[in-house]
Amino acid sequence: MKEVLKNLDKAFENRIRLGIMSVLMVDEHIDFNELKTLLGVTDGNLASHLKNLEKSGYITYKKSFLERKPNTNYTATKKGKESFMKHINALEQLLH
């Protein structure tokens, strides 16, 4: 049990961060606004959680201009995907 708990990742304890990673596991990339509508959160809230994941090295972003409006596209890193899988496996183990 202790071992399993160790695999739980603090970064994913928050629902929004969990949501962001879930999206990025299936979508190669997603921009800020799409993510916002999908998760139903406010700008500030989402931004701070994105920054948090970015600091952990779980996601990266690319800024570009789309029809002259700035557009930020997020992608999960390899490290992020691996940590997320580990986290989900730990969750599943805890439930069984």
Partner: peptide, 16 residues
Amino acid sequence: YSEDLREIRDIMQRSS
């Protein structure tokens, strides 16, 4: 935790 998992599954389906 089961709520977490349910949410993950739900979001993955919605976003894919």
